[in-house]
Nucleic acid binder design. Structure first.
Lengths: 189, 189
DNA sequence: TGTAGCATGTAAGCCGTTACATGATTGA
DNA sequence: TCAATCATGTAACGGCTTACATGCTACA
């Protein structure tokens, strides 16, 4: 959240959540709305952000937040002083592949296919985000992240397709005279 | 944990943690020891695992767990009926790149380099695990996961190297007469 | 004889979630 | 006039972690 505020403009809790949904979500996690407000209160108590209430149109009130100098200093300190932690992945597709002996080769292939579909639309999302960032040097790094993301998922698609092919050719099927109906080792398929 | 037990042999809580550290950890997460025991109790109450106490050498006692038929059924049901969730990544390297405007291009490059080093040893770990699995058809799917992992991280290295190159060539440096000392826009570098 | 590894657990607490509650504004 | 969106929060709770507590065995 400090990072999102470090790009400059003061943001409401609601807007922070939106930015998180459109950027952070792809490589970190997007906090729940309730968490956003709770965390903003905490950051303000710590002096890392300040807020002011702005009268919206009509009777509407908005609280907008800005990162303080101390907040930015703290963020820089974190970037400079902490070790790079290796990415943590919760990869349900890998888990399912790992348990292929339970689902069977056929179901595992289907699962991989549906993952490829999801990957394709994820790449499209990233493409749109990258496009929205334009050439603005202010967003140079976010743009790099978006480009990285697209490449990352393209490599994932290639790897998954390869895996699916290897499942086809693998030794897990019962040999059948014609090529079409080799059964799986599992009875429920 | 049910998945780890689904490979057959009965395991102690301690062994489950070890298996998790050497396999699950790469694509899911490895629960804390305390969590392992708590969860095993819970799974036993639910009838998804059973345990028996085995006298070890001397006065030592071990509790070994086996997945029950119901546990395996439940696991198969989960695999078959739930939607594949898209992988969730907590990628601190991407976050740091995203915040490149705070750390500066130079520090960001250094950070990417150290990530490449970590990736290299991660690939080595996976290579060793893959080798340990051998050709045993029992571990066919875990072997596929290990191979996938190696390929995955190799693609990551290529992408990160590419990013680092683009940071070198990028417009973020102040032009310098000789090529060696282009300063960053940040004063603390 | 002491340290690393095997082995099992309890207690406290953090970080995040979902569910619930409220209300204004914009535009179809 | 009604739904979508903007906007802010509280309460309950789940899942996982760290810190703590205990004790045996193998081996250098």
């Amino acid at each position: 959240m400090l990072g999102l505020l470090s790009f400059g403009p003061e943001l409401s809790g609601y807007e922070i959540k939106q930015r998180a949904d459109s950027t952070l979500r792809f490589f970190w996690f997007s906090p729940a709305m309730s968490q956003v407000y709770a965390e903003l209160d905490r950051l303000e108590r710590l002096g890392l952000v300040t807020s002011r209430r702005i009268p919206g149109p009509g009777r509407r009130r908005t609280r907008r937040f800005t990162i303080t100098e101390e907040g930015e200093k703290e963020l820089r300190r974190w970037l400079a002083e902490t070790e790079v932690e290796f990415p943590v992945i919760k990869h349900s597709v890998a888990l399912r592949l790992f348990l292929g002996h339970l689902a069977g080769a056929q179901a595992t292939r289907t699962m991989l296919d549906s993952y490829v579909t999801q990957l394709t639309s994820r790449i499209e999302e990233l493409r749109a985000i990258r496009e929205g960032l334009g050439d603005d040097p202010h967003f140079r790094y976010p743009a790099l992240v978006a480009e990285w993301g697209q490449r990352y998922y393209e490599a994932e698609i290639a790897a998954v397709r390869d895996l699916a092919d290897r499942l086809d050719g693998g030794g897990d099927r019962v040999a059948a005279p014609d090529g079409s109906a080799g059964g799986d080792q599992l009875s429920d398929e």
